[in-house]
């Protein structure tokens, strides 16, 4: 069994590599999380995050989670959001809806919808949008996996976002996980909503469970129960401690590819 001293040295080396890889945003988030235990951090610019959800029917929830993070990134210097979708997946996943964005607390004027014809165009548009100084975040809705979106492509996107300071969220669907260079990988699922104050039978403000599969923010916590309010994220205590093997590290039974990808990205 490796001694704790050795583990500490390993951790220090990993941090060192992370710094070399220009992940200050991640490091900053880590500091913030440790100072405010339990609260969901506001990430800085320049991160590539993958957001997985199991089914296409959760497309509303995963878009909500991405936009909730993106809303915190909007500033006067970076006022715009770019949403990318394949043109033929509009009916499968639904299109972002202007009045719905208003209900969510986001000005639809800020969002540019780009409906591309194929994956190559989507990757081009994502990279082009990241290079723009006025873009706060790019949300790429990827309904089905494509061979073009491999490790090299995601590595390109992560380098580009780290260099220019734009953030990018890849919304992915399904249980399969491909290797990627994402800084953080989430698995998001909707949970029953909060009860609204006046009608116990009605759905209330949305709630999601976000499990961190990739990248560490804080030791011993890899899962948050989040709510979305007008003021931003609200975090709740988990109803029960996660005992189904999800605590810490990889959340899925398929732990091996995730960890492998983790190592690859830090050394590549």
């Amino acid at each position: 069994m490796p001694s704790s001293d050795r583990q500490q040295r390993l951790a220090a080396l990993r941090d060192c590599i992370a710094d070399i890889e220009r992940k200050p945003a991640l490091a900053q988030a880590r500091v913030e999380v440790e100072s405010r235990t339990g609260a969901f951090p506001q990430f800085g610019n320049g991160l590539l995050q993958e957001m997985f959800t199991d089914e296409p029917r959760n497309s509303g929830a995963v878009l909500g989670f991405a936009l909730a993070q993106a809303k915190g990134l909007i500033s006067t210097q970076r006022p715009a959001l770019i949403y990318l979708q394949l043109a033929d997946e509009g009916q499968k996943l639904g299109l972002p809806y202007g009045p719905g964005l208003l209900s969510f607390g986001l000005d639809p004027d800020r969002m540019v919808l780009v409906r591309v014809a194929n994956m190559a165009e989507m990757l081009w548009a994502a990279e082009e949008a990241l290079a723009c100084r006025a873009v706060a975040a790019v949300v790429a809705d990827i309904g089905s996996h494509s061979k073009l979106l491999d490790f090299t492509a995601s590595r390109r996107l992560s380098m580009r976002s780290a260099a220019t300071g734009g953030s990018i969220f890849l919304l992915r669907y399904g249980l399969g996980r491909q290797t990627s260079a994402a800084h953080l990988r989430w698995r998001l699922s909707p949970v029953p909503s909060a009860p609204p104050p006046y009608d116990s039978k009605a759905p209330g403000p949305p709630r999601w469970r976000a499990e961190l599969e990739r990248g560490t923010l804080i030791k011993h916590q890899a899962s948050w129960l989040l709510g979305w309010t007008d003021d931003g994220f609200a975090t709740f205590e988990l109803e029960r401690p996660i005992d189904d093997g999800l605590g810490g590290g990889a959340a899925l039974p398929r732990a091996v590819p995730a960890q492998l990808a983790d190592r690859l990205s830090q050394t590549a």
Binding site: I82, V112, V114, A117, E121, E128
Partner: peptide, 19 residues
């Protein structure tokens, strides 16, 4: 950015919501 994306992807690919 919108100009560039429009010239590459086509006019009807780069859209904004009008209420």
């Amino acid at each position: 950015l919108n100009d560039r994306m429009t010239s590459r992807l086509g006019t009807m690919a780069v859209l904004k919501t009008e209420l």
